[in-house]
């Protein structure tokens, strides 16, 4: 019932989704995670199995408590599963983290207020021991990627919320990990800024060909961005449905009015509603 690998199989090539040909990057098998709390055990994840292939853009969507963030944190080795297996780039999550396999973007930008934007982006590079010249080069590159060139010398409080979040994405991109994990990165931003950032994120994804894991509350956001949408349901946190998107890789904002888009969104909504029915 996990991995109800589904339907849209007939025309993978035609949709421009190249991912089916690519190697598996993240593989979860029967993953369990139980937190011991004062009120007894909480099943954050139960029997979660999922394959994410190189170049996929995977969204995790579901109500609070469905384990979408927990799953992302497991991939990042910020949480330790209590059962099942999880591999990232063929390694354990811990090993993968030590190999700088992923960049992580949190809901809040979390920039250091005492560092300029450029210095903030250098933070992981300093920790990982890059040379000064290499640091400067990479800062330039990623600032350009998130369209913040020229803002390197500014302090975080001088930037808007959306720009701060872009800077934090640049920080996650700076050390050029193949995987980008994003935990509701745009959740705190208003609709208009969010649309703009979604568009930019897709462009960035196309340019860098990274594998992206993206946690969100928003159905349109999930459908607009993803090649694969994972619908999750709570108590215990589990995968309810996995939807392979039929949308082309090239996605202008107005694709959201197309019948295809609406159909996928519909299916996601149905999945969310059915998931809730278990309560």
């Amino acid at each position: 019932m996990n991995m109800e690998t589904t339907t849209q199989a007939p025309e993978p090539q035609a949709t421009g989704s190249q991912s089916s040909a690519q190697a598996t990057v993240i593989e979860a098998k029967n993953l369990d995670l139980t937190f011991q709390t004062n009120d007894g055990p909480v099943h954050a994840l139960k029997d979660v199995s999922l394959n994410i292939r190189k170049g996929d853009f995977v969204s995790f969507i579901g109500p609070s408590g469905c384990g979408k963030t927990t799953f992302l944190r497991c991939i990042a080795a910020l949480e330790r599963p209590t059962g099942g297996t999880l591999s990232v780039n063929g390694m354990t999550p811990d090993e993968a983290r030590r190999q700088r396999a992923y960049g992580y973007v949190f809901q809040a930008a979390g920039l250091y207020p005492w560092r300029t934007i450029a210095k903030n982006i250098k933070l992981p590079l300093e920790i990982m021991g890059y040379s000064k010249t290499e640091q400067d080069k990479r800062v330039e590159q990623v600032l350009d990627l998130v369209e913040l060139s020229g803002f390197g010398g500014k302090f975080p409080w001088q930037l808007s919320g959306g720009m701060q979040q872009r800077a934090s994405i640049a920080r996650a991109l700076a050390f050029d990990a193949d995987i980008l994990l994003m935990d509701e990165p745009f959740g705190a931003l208003d609709e208009i800024v969010r649309d703009h950032l979604n568009e930019q994120l897709l462009k960035l994804w196309a340019r860098t060909n990274k594998t992206i894991g993206f946690v969100t509350h928003s159905i349109p956001e999930a459908v607009y961005l993803s090649t694969k949408i994972v619908v999750m349901s709570p108590r215990p946190g589990r995968i309810h449905d996995v939807i392979d998107s039929t949308l082309p890789k090239e996605r202008p904002l107005d694709i959201r009015d197309s019948p295809e888009f609406i159909e996928i969104a519909h299916r996601v909504r149905d999945g969310l509603r059915a998931g809730h029915g278990h309560d």
Partner: peptide, 12 residues
């Protein structure tokens, strides 16, 4: 926590 987690993701 978020700040500490961020450093953890860098294996700092």
């Amino acid at each position: 926590h978020m700040q500490l987690d961020l450093l953890k993701t860098y294996s700092a």
